[in-house]
Design a protein around this nucleic acid. Sequence first.
DNA 1: CAATAATTTTAATCTAGATTAAAATAATGC
DNA 2: GCATTATTTTAATCTAGATTAAAATTATTG
Lengths: 193, 193
Amino acid sequence: MASDAEETRFQLQKARMLRAAAQCFNDKGYSGTSLRDVADVLGLTDAALYYYVRNKEELVYLCYVRAADLGREALDRAHRDGENGLDIILRYFRYHIEMMVGERGPIAIMSEIPSLKPDHRAEVMELSRRHSKNFEAVLETGIEDGSVSPCNVRMTGNAIMGSINWIPKWFHGDPELAQKLIDEFPEVLARGL
Amino acid sequence: MASDAEETRFQLQKARMLRAAAQCFNDKGYSGTSLRDVADVLGLTDAALYYYVRNKEELVYLCYVRAADLGREALDRAHRDGENGLDIILRYFRYHIEMMVGERGPIAIMSEIPSLKPDHRAEVMELSRRHSKNFEAVLETGIEDGSVSPCNVRMTGNAIMGSINWIPKWFHGDPELAQKLIDEFPEVLARGL
DNA sequence: CAATAATTTTAATCTAGATTAAAATAATGC
DNA sequence: GCATTATTTTAATCTAGATTAAAATTATTG
């Protein structure tokens, strides 16, 4: 039976699947990737995916939830490690980008939220909105502690999230660029703060 | 026959179609919008669209070419009107955003480039790359004339393009927000320059 | 090793939505 | 108004790719 170790086998395979799916969606586009494509990456048959997921819509949904989770995780960690507002922000950028370009990546771009079924869509949008709010809150913190100069936090937040979310559009796995991204992008983003 | 005025009728209807398609794609997602959906916006039948376009792929392709054209147009205009590097940049932001949120909008988010057929994909990517290059060139100009402080133009360009391209993700037609965007977003983007 | 449960495959369906052809309607030029 | 061309619709196809059911394989457990 599926006790500890076996529970993990299932979980691990499912996790692999979500990474494979994210990769396909980012590389081939949503409509351009069939379940066959995802299965190929895993060395499986398309039908096998149905053991892990009810249908394609759920696969996308899970990719997006995972994306949101990783974003939140990066921000949480930054919160724990950071000294002041700006420091938290810079760390968040770094942690999040490290995930996107590292072994835990790629992270699916949320371009197909509208085609999720209503309850899934609502949930993902809520997660996404909450993440934005949390980031804006850090901006406020920074403004209060003087590490960030005053600005329109809503707009600034949207601008920065856009920059981050767009990264998978132009980053496709080049390791050199990955390092440059980790090293330089956080400062570029924080330049105006 | 289709001389001047009639040529325009066809052109006008085709242009309407591209705007309708961009709206649908941005609102419902790519896989979420059927040709039926686009036709509904126009008060037509799905089959009628084939009078203007060979197939759905071409429709998407044309939306993206149009998006690229409008971006280029905004940058060109900024070039003509601007006094120095930073001024050109600020104007470009403003003009581009005005288009996105105004009557000529919406502009399709290029999320499905990978599912275009190879030659279309190559062309659109080339247009997009060229636009980025042109923008980076203005950054350089600004650095040279002292209106922009030195930075990694490649990264900065990517960051800013991401912010702009992501706008349709959170802007869905609210007129109040549209005005705020036009008024405030350019400065937010230029904050770090 | 036998028995049970977990995972994957094979081989069909099933379906939405793209596409097409022919007919109908509307616009325009003469 | 008639003839011609432009535009749209109606009514079928056609198809890729999602989905499903049953069988086969692989792993686990006692």
